[in-house]
Write a protein that binds this DNA or RNA. Sequence first.
DNA 1: AGTAATTATATAACCAGTTATGCAAATTTA
DNA 2: TAAATTTGCATAACTGGTTATATAATTACT
Lengths: 319, 319
Amino acid sequence: MELFEKTGKIALGSRLRYMASNVTDEAARLHELYQIDFAPKWFPVFFVLSEGDCKTITDIANEIGHSQPSVTKIVKEMINAGLVEDNLRSQDKRRNMVGLTKQGKALWERMRIQCIDIDHAIDGIIQEATHNLWEALAEWEFLLEQKSLLKRVQEQKKIRESKDVRVVPYQAEYRQAFKSLNEEWISTYFEMEETDHKALDNPEEYILAKGGKILVALYNNEPLGVCSLIKMDHPEFDYELAKMAVSPKAQGKSVGTILGRAIIEEAKTLGASKLYLESNTILKPAINLYHKLGFQKITGYPSPYQRCNIQMELDLRNS
Amino acid sequence: MELFEKTGKIALGSRLRYMASNVTDEAARLHELYQIDFAPKWFPVFFVLSEGDCKTITDIANEIGHSQPSVTKIVKEMINAGLVEDNLRSQDKRRNMVGLTKQGKALWERMRIQCIDIDHAIDGIIQEATHNLWEALAEWEFLLEQKSLLKRVQEQKKIRESKDVRVVPYQAEYRQAFKSLNEEWISTYFEMEETDHKALDNPEEYILAKGGKILVALYNNEPLGVCSLIKMDHPEFDYELAKMAVSPKAQGKSVGTILGRAIIEEAKTLGASKLYLESNTILKPAINLYHKLGFQKITGYPSPYQRCNIQMELDLRNS
DNA sequence: AGTAATTATATAACCAGTTATGCAAATTTA
DNA sequence: TAAATTTGCATAACTGGTTATATAATTACT
């Protein structure tokens, strides 16, 4: 199929289905070649039953990775074909124990020969090819079990989108965003306090004029994250990292990380040696982010905020 | 799936189907991730329409390798979703020209980004894996087009079965087979002649007693092929290769070749230096076999058989 | 020009699987 | 020990495809 070269790997599913149906069609004709009256779809059930004892419908389904109703249907067909018997010995009357009939066992003996021929034929193709399809499938089953395709694509999306996040200094046009993004999370988890209102209603005066800094993260020119450094009058700490807020719309774009790293760089260029922050352990993603950025938990400083139950610091002289 | 390791490569079809369904399921969830209201099965149609102009149902079906009714259904669904318009300009009123709507084109632009992420994600798996599934599929498509799986298995069957063919010297128990196998082909294509009756009714006297040899090919102890060397009283030729017959039941087991090689070996151990045979060009498979065994066409010797229109020789001193 | 053959599509019926559901038997819990 | 839950299976309805077939429009052939 030429199409697959054009679409790219997004058509992997279609390509697999296409190959599967080709192979299955040929398998059907193979049974004719060996003059065996056998539907290819019976094979997995037939195989597990050939291993010996009788089994329940559900056990077979689990072993072959089909749904239970699918096995029920196949077993019914195989009973009609005389290959399989059901309701074999079991005291549990819900269970339907299924096993091969004499005829089924005899057919299996003939089938094994056919399997060997097919195995050789497929090995032949593997020899001819430079890429081993059989091994590739086994490997992919493993790799996708480890980390699903969905997860892998999600990661790619994040990488791509985070490339489109720009961090810019605060300007008057972002005052509304600075306020609403912060109000959103504060009023969701806590109550707005007096100190919040002061800083959010007039950041120019309460943050910038006092030597602080505000950064805004833009995605498609829309402000989706904000963050500020507030100048502290403290023997140890130069700035407080505060009023960090990221819109829920921006999830999965690493906006928090990008903004955090940018504000730390900003602090460094301002000549800061130690940063301080206060938060609440209820905000798990935020705490995780601070940790990732290098902040360490500290204790014993007074806070103007009621909601604060954790304090952290970042020593910039280390890095 | 552990099963696939146990069944061997005969389950290739199942394994492919299993992987295809896994990948397709994840694809469906991917569209959710990107908040696109889109059924994965629409993708091939959507893709070919995105390439530009509108197309007929049948053209689309051919391009994506689906049946025409499948495309009819998909197009209908996409019309309901507002992505596609039908009955676009065409003077031929049988044709249903289909193209993307504005909305469809807009969706394609968003989708392209998604495709890139998926491509990257799949490339990532390919990097992790040692066997390249994508390339393997492309290669297999090519190799199976060159020679179908059916044909390849047929070849393996032939190789295996020809190993079970045993060649043994003539014994009285094979007299009936020697006669009937020869009568079968002679009376199908020609008339039985006087010379035939003599040799077939009493091979001990007319062939063996005169220093000739008869070999019988057995498959599962059943005589399915016969062949004889008849001592010639001739300055150039030592023996005539004659009364070679293979049952139609034995087709695809290389019985003819095996028997031919055996009788040539026999002639060598008898010290023969040149073999002779007569046949008819109507028997193409036989002539091919003689050729394969090394016989060369010659002319100008008298024959007791009416049906003979070609004569061949094999010089044993060459090999 | 009229008939026959071909083409493009829609529709119906099927196929190999799925999920959803209901029922009876068995097991667990109170 | 009775009630609640779980288990095993059959059945029904759906899905994404298929083949077979009917019909209308077009083209080819007297």
